[in-house]
Structures are given as C-alpha cells and as structure tokens.
Design a protein around this nucleic acid. Structure first.
Length: 471
RNA sequence: GGCGGCGUAGCCAAGUGGUAAGGCAGAGGACUGCAAAUCCUUUAUGCGCCGGUUCAAAUCCGGCCGCCGCCUCCA
C-alpha cells in the first residue's frame, strides 16, 4: 500500500462524521451493497448508487485492499408478485430477464463485478434461521400467520437514522392493508401466505420473507455477523438499514457494521424522478438518446456521492465534453509512445505527474472526493499538454505518463481503449483526402472530411499526420 | 408536523474564517489551406435575502425565502 500523509476516511451515516477507515481484518474489506429489486429495468438514479459503490470498491483496490463485495438481488417483493400475477407467470419468469438486463447495464457503465450476487429466493433457509433465533430470544410475535419484530425490545433502535421510535408517524401511511400489529412501528419478518401469492413452507407457516430480513441473512452468509462497510441510497437509511441492524444485532449479539455509507438521490431537471412526471429514465433510455456510456459514467462519477446531482441534457453534454478531453489526452500519449522518439527526459513532466498522483490520492482519501480528484486531473492534463506542446517526449517517459493515467482510471473507469480499427473504406477515404490536400484541392478534402464526420469519424490534422477519433 | 440536506457565474461543480478551484458553454488571440486538437487571454467587486460577530465571512451566529429527501418495503 502506498504511504500517504493522510489516511482514508469515510463519512459514516451512523456517527454523522468522517472517520478514519480501518478494516476489521487487515488488508481485507468486506462490504455489503444494497442492490436492485428486479421488478423492472433499473433507472439512472439506481445507477448513481451502483457507480458510487463501484468507485468505492475500485478505490479500496487502488489502496491495496482485497475487497469482498456482496450485492443482493431482491427477487421477491410486492411489485414483483403483482406484475407476475398480471402477466400470469411465475415470479422467477418475471425477474430473470431483468436480472440479465441489470448485468448488461453494469457492463455498459463499466462497473466491476462484485464477488457475490445472491438472490433473495435462494436464501430462504438462512432467513428462517435468523427469524428462529430472534424468536428464541423473544424479539418476535405472531399475528394472523405473520411474524413481527418487536422494536421496543431493541434498545438502540433508531441510532442509524436518528429517528426515535416514538417519533415515527403513525396513522396515515400505516393503512388497514397492514396486518394487526402490537405496535405500528414493528415490521414484518415473515409474511403469512396470501392467496395466489408465491410462498414457501416454514416452521412459521406458509409465507414469504419480509423485505429487511434478506440483507441480514445474505450479509451473514457471505461476510459474517460483523463486517466493514454497508452502503445504499439515502432512502435505505430508514427503515431498511435501521431494521437490518435491529435484526442482525439482536440475533448475533455483536455489532453488525462499522461504516454506513449512503449516497444522495439523483434528481432530473431539479425534481425527483417519477414516471408520472415524465422525467423517468433508464440507462437504456439515455443510451438511446445518443449519450455515450462513458459520458454517463463520467457524469455520475464527477459529483460527490453525498451531494445532490441533477440530471439534465445540458449536464450530460458537458460531461461528454469533459470525458472527451480526458480521452484526447490519452490518445496523445499513446501516439507519442507509438512514435518511439528518443529525447531527453523532461523533468517538469515528472514533477507534474507526481504532484497529480499525490493530489488525486489526497482527495480520494477524503471520503471519495471525486470532484476535486477530477479537478486535479484536469490541472494535470493542462500542464502536461503545455509541456508536450513545447518538448519532444521520449517513449519511456510517455509510458510512465500512460501508466499514471491508467492507474488513476482503475478508479474513475472512463478511459476506453480504441476497440476497433477503421474499416478499409474509411482508411481509403482518409488517404484520398490526404492526396487531395497535397494537391491543394481543398474543396474536395473538406467534402471528404464532412462525409466522415457524418459517419462519426472526426479528423484532426496534426504535425505528425492525421489523427482520427469516433464521435 | 418530526428529522436531515441544499441554495456559489449561462450550465455542472469545488471552496467550511484570510480575500472566489476545475469542467462545459461564450469572446479575443496563437497554430492551421480551412478546421479540429492544443496553448494564451478573458468571463462572479461577489457566493438565496436581511441583520450580527470579527482586523477579516461564501465560510461562524440569528432571522427570513426557496428547493430537495426520509418518516414501513423507492438507490
């Protein structure tokens, strides 16, 4: 691990403070990241959370930690059951295509694979095990075939969200649809079977799991009773995560999670995304509108995860431009390497990238401060371009520059190596244009350039020949 | 009603007591056959509003206005 003057720290929702990070097991971080409920395509707001978690994971790797990440797939829940019923299919037939789509989307956004993606329905026995333990410890009671958790018995209930149990508004949102409970604030662990609903047999009778229990069961399964980091969107703080703590700690008797990290919601044009408002976008919608995946990822990475982020057409365009600037710089360095020039080492350049790496790490260490980390990247690009304009650069030095950029991009994840070569027809057009230029037939040359532009190929005439890029 | 967060240039977004980062867009210039890329210059006498503390406030305190989130299954 690199030595840095400062230490990695995260803002912990539970303590409302930034705290230095220490893993339970040296060199190994175990984290649980709340994943999607797969009743439909995930929307762009969901992906803010997953990209944030990806950056967290990537930076922990950058810092030399081994990471074990679990992301649950919630594949049984009210909406899933309702939609499956409407279509006359099983819940599994309904969720599997959306699970596949979810993984495609993760790939589109260059999100690294977690170590485990457990599906709730595969861990029913583990959930029942926890409920059994809770019952033995007298944290539960039964009503009409459902098992409830008795909040009043858990002393520190509310410590994550800051919501005291007696402040929870009773009435309006707790409607007659709910089963009879001793206390309106209690939550369900096991829901008694309703007609036509998918159910599992259990010692508590036929039914299905409550929402919160799956995360307690699956985190325990893969990470143990006590692990390092648990993340999710801000909406999860209450009641979901609060209830997870209550369940897990009551059952295990030990502390559940050391660091709780939550990201803010994404807004669209200043408002909460809602299908009724017509401002609801899936990742696929944005791609279809012509937004480049890397530009979308850049947009999500460029703001701090605890700050509000407002999606708009203009903001996405700006992100695309900023991303292009990074890519152009990358291309420039790759070309220098390909040219194999022999030149004296430019020490000013070494100084720039060393300064940059230090700044980048300092900012990322500070609760993943990506806005400032990227600002230092742009400073670095500007200063490097200046030096590159004025000096020939040796291949060996350019390689170091590229390594630096790539290493930083193991965290940011927006640099795309050129995937495809140009097809021959385009190569020929570029050559044709070069010939025309030599003969000073500029009208023809410009016409070819325009044609290529229409096909998404942008040409740049440089001192060292023609450079092309897509889009 | 309770709890929490936010309000900085046309847009995105840093800055949490010392005199306004960075990106995009705009303007002028260098380079170019013209462009593009790159570089240079330029763009907030002011950080929602009104008071207060201080030698000094976007930053602290009080009040007000506006926006957002959570308050039982929504990242």
């Amino acid at each position: 691990m690199t030595q840095a003057a400062n230490t990695l720290q995260f803002y912990n929702t539970e303590t409302k403070r930034k705290e230095p990070f220490t893993s339970i097991e040296p060199g190994h971080v175990r984290m649980y990241t709340c994943g999607p409920t797969v009743y439909d395509f995930a929307h762009i707001g969901n992906y803010r959370a997953y990209v944030f978690e990806d950056v967290l994971r990537r930076y922990l790797h950058y810092r030399g930690y081994r990471v074990t990440q679990v992301m649950n797939l919630t594949d049984v829940e009210d909406k899933i059951i309702r939609r499956a019923q409407e279509k006359g299919i099983t819940i599994f037939e309904h969720t599997v295509p959306f699970i596949e789509a979810f993984f495609e989307d993760l790939d589109t956004l260059n999100i690294e694979q977690a170590e485990h993606y457990p599906r709730a329905t595969d861990y029913i026995p583990q959930m029942l095990e926890i409920i059994r333990t809770l019952r033995e410890k007298d944290y539960t009671y039964e009503r009409d075939g459902s098992i409830y958790y008795r909040i009043a018995k858990f002393q520190s209930y509310g410590r994550l969200s800051g919501i005291r149990p007696d402040e929870v508004k009773s009435g309006a949102r707790i409607d007659s649809d709910e089963y009879e409970k001793d206390d309106a604030r209690d939550f369900v662990l096991w829901k008694g079977r309703k007609e036509n609903e998918h159910f599992w047999e259990s010692e508590f009778g036929p039914g299905r799991p409550g929402w919160h229990i799956e995360c307690s069961a699956m985190s325990k399964e893969f990470l143990g009773d006590h692990f390092d980091i648990h993340t999710g969107g801000e909406d999860n703080i209450f009641p979901h995560h609060e209830n997870e703590i209550a369940q897990s700690e009551a059952a295990s008797g030990v502390k559940f999670v050391n660091y709780w990290l939550h990201c803010r919601h994404l807004l669209v044009d200043g408002e909460k995304m809602a299908k009724s408002k017509g401002n609801f976008f899936t990742l696929r919608d944005l791609i279809q509108r012509g937004h480049h995946p890397s530009a979308i990822r850049y947009f999500l990475v460029a703001s701090h995860y605890r700050s509000p982020l407002n999606l708009s057409e203009e903001a996405l365009k700006a992100s695309h431009a900023a991303w292009t600037r990074i890519m152009d710089f990358h291309t420039r360095i790759v070309e220098i390497i390909q040219r194999k020039v022999d030149a004296p080492r430019v020490e000013a350049l070494d100084a720039e990238w060393k300064k940059f790496v230090t700044q980048f790490e300092t900012h990322m260490d500070d609760d993943l401060d990506t806005p400032r980390a990227l600002a230092s990247l742009f400073d670095f690009i500007k200063e490097s371009n200046k030096i590159l304009d004025a000096n020939p650069i040796a291949q060996s030095q350019a390689k170091q520059l590229l390594d630096t950029l790539k290493r930083v991009d193991t965290v940011i994840g927006v640099i795309k190596e050129e995937e495809a070569l140009l097809d021959e027809e385009i190569e020929q057009l570029i050559q044709l244009r070069q010939d025309a230029r030599k003969q000073k037939k500029f009208a023809l040359a410009d016409k070819i350039r325009d044609e290529l532009a229409n096909q998404g190929i942008i040409l740049e005439d440089t001192r060292d020949g023609v450079r092309w890029k897509r889009r």
